[in-house]
Write a protein that binds this DNA or RNA. Sequence first.
DNA 1: GTACAGATTGAG
DNA 2: TCAATCTGTACT
Length: 191
Amino acid sequence: MVYKKLKREFYTQPTLVTAKQLLGKYLIRKFNNKELIGKIVETEAYIGPKDRASHAFRGKVTKRNETEYLEGGHIYIYLVYGMYWQLNITTNIKGKPECVLIRALEPVTPVQDMRIASGPGKLCQWLKLDKSFDKEDLTKSKRIWLAGGGGQIDENEIIATKRIGIDYAGHYWANKPWRFYIKNNPFISKR
DNA sequence: GTACAGATTGAG
DNA sequence: TCAATCTGTACT
């Protein structure tokens, strides 16, 4: 399998486009001279000041969400519930607080528990991701990056459905079909 | 210095 | 369905 590192142009596309194209791509994490590789099978889009579920709702800039405003291709990582990290990838151009949450990976590197990355909190534990990855540039980093492998996922293999865990944002936003996953893939997060 | 929210998870 | 659990952020 030939891995082609994704370039800046991939990330600066509209968020919903990038979110869908991210499916089937590979996340490579270099750790202790070993490479942990996972295929992205589930994503969620968060779109800027409009989206009530986004941290950047109303365009407010805080220390916590300033990363979201960076140009596409950066990591936005943040802690929820005091115990789980969320791995996001910023999208679109600088100044647009849009990003894609990586919700689940299918381990390519052999692991004991193959569902070890089936959930946004779990995949960060597996890959040993923490605050130090905030603002990491995926096009330059030597320890984490994304690559394309076997080609695009077919359009009708992609399921779009409502996002998870954001009921507080109200029905309108909570029901937006901005969660994408690969049809019949056993590694998506279960609920 | 203190209050408080929170893009989850697993068990029941 | 429900509570555990705790850091960073945003206030005073």
